[in-house]
Every structure is written in structure tokens, then in C-alpha cells.
Amino acid sequence: MTRLSVNVNKIAVLRNSRGGALPDVVEAARACLDAGAHGITVHPRPDARHIRADDVLALAQLTRAYGVEFNLEGNPFAPPRAGYPGFLALCEQARPAQATLVPDGDGQLTSDHGFDFARDADALQPLVDALKALDCRVSLFADAGSAVERAAQIGADRIELYTGPYAEAFAQGDAGAVIAACADTARRAQAVGLGVNAGHDLDQHNLAAFLAGVPEVLEVSIGHALIGEALYAGLDATVRAYLRIVSGALSS
């Protein structure tokens, strides 16, 4: 079953652009959950340019009240600083159902690649162990074609396929090769016991084709496109539209 987790980072971007408390990140997340979203995702960064540590704790409380998944994304290697206690410390405080580790640097506008598991696995191992000790499911951001078998060896539960290249190829009308690479990577991950999530630049135009082409995707995390589309149609209607796409993919 594919589940929809809504990333509400962009709500915080809008709030922070003006200062103050509006729009309210928690109320936006509540609207998404009331529309049927299966969970909430946030990716706090050390510079606090959108989601802040206090948002993380408030959203953890909200998702527990709703009985849904809270997915906390971040770079586990980024050092703590004022206002940002570090990714592991945030997980210790918030106890998300899922921790998604992403190799993004401070200067990146958005995540744009997965881990190099041949290079990074040994450094990731103790972090995976620490997160699993907190009862977090651990997912690792992965490129299509990457050595996902190594992710399984260090104890990860899932990978999240980075779908930026797929979205770009789909927009250009030639996504066949990228879909095939994603499907192959998903099958290799599943063969060694990993679940498969997906995220980045998925939207209402390209999501159905991705789910039709890549087997047994457990969860999609969608934020930028969904929030943008919601400016025109509203959060409730937009979340419900994504849920119809997911349901259609499941029934096809």
C-alpha cells in the first residue's frame, strides 16, 4: 500500500518570509491530515530557513494525537548550532516514526542526490543504530542505480528513491529509462529486505506513472508541488486529489 506523507516545509518558508506565526505550520498539517493524508514530513535544516526545532516538536505532538506517521528528514552529519540541536538530538526529542537520512549540505537549496553507500555506509552505521534504538524506522535517501544492498547491510529499514531525475525526464517526455532504473533499484532493495519510499518533485502530473512503473512503493513524500497546487485549489482538495492518484495506482 502506497501512503502519502505531506511535507509542510513550504508553509514555514512563507511564515518565515514575514515573521510571526502565520501561516501556522501545525494548522496546515492538521488540514492535510483532516483531508486524509497518511502522515506529515518535515526536513529541518541547521540554518532554520523554514522548519524550526519548535515546529518539529509541535508536529510530533500533532501526529501522535492523530495516530499517523511523523517522518523527520535531515542530514545526520550536520553539527548542532544555535537553534538547531542536531538531527539525532531532534529525533531523541520528537521520536518520529521514521527518520529519513539525507546527504544535503548547508548551502543546498534542496536535496539533490542520495548517499554513496560504498563511501558512506561505515559512517552511517552508528547513526542507523542510534536511531533504531529510539524505535525510529530508518530510511536512507538513495539514487536510482545506487548500491542499496549496502544500505541493508548496515541495518536500514527502507530507502527513499530520489525522484528528481524522474520528474525532469517526465517533463521532457522521455521518462522510460529513468523509470526502468528506479524499478530495478526498487526490486534490488526489496530483494534484500528493504522497503521503498520515494520523493522529490513528484506532482499530480507524474505521480501515477511513477507508481505504475515502480513496484511496491510504500510511501511518497510530497511537499513543494502539493503546497504550490494548493494555492489554487486549497489544501483539502489538493490532498484528496493526490489520494485519488495513489488509490488509482493501487487498484490498477
Rank of each mutant, 00 (worst) to 15 (best):
M1F: 05
R3C: 10
S5R: 10
S5K: 03
V8Q: 01
N9A: 07
R18F: 06
P23D: 08
V26W: 03
E27G: 03
A28L: 07
A28S: 14
A35D: 06
G39I: 01
H50I: 09
R52S: 14
L57G: 03
A58D: 10
L59P: 02
A60E: 03
E69P: 05
F70H: 11
L72F: 07
E73G: 02
N75K: 00
P76V: 03
P79L: 14
R81P: 01
R81Q: 14
Y84V: 10
P85D: 10
F87E: 00
L90T: 12
C91V: 03
C91Y: 05
R95N: 08
R95K: 15
Q98N: 15
A99Q: 01
L101R: 07
D104H: 05
G105K: 13
G107Q: 12
G107A: 14
L109Q: 15
D112S: 12
D116P: 07
A118T: 12
D122S: 12
A123C: 08
Q125L: 14
L134I: 07
R137W: 05
D143C: 08
A144E: 11
G145Y: 03
E149Y: 04
R150K: 15
R150F: 04
D157A: 02
I159Y: 06
T163E: 05
T163M: 00
A169K: 03
F170D: 13
F170T: 06
A171G: 11
A171S: 15
G173A: 00
D174E: 15
A181E: 15
C182V: 00
T185N: 10
T185M: 02
A186W: 05
A186G: 08
Q190T: 08
A191Y: 04
V192Q: 10
V196S: 03
N197S: 07
A198P: 09
H200D: 11
D203C: 13
A209W: 05
A212R: 11
G213K: 11
P215T: 07
E216S: 14
L218V: 04
E219N: 09
S221L: 08
S221P: 02
I222P: 03
L231W: 11
Y232N: 12
A233S: 14
L235T: 14
T238V: 01
Y242W: 12
Y242K: 04
I245G: 05
A249E: 13
S252K: 13
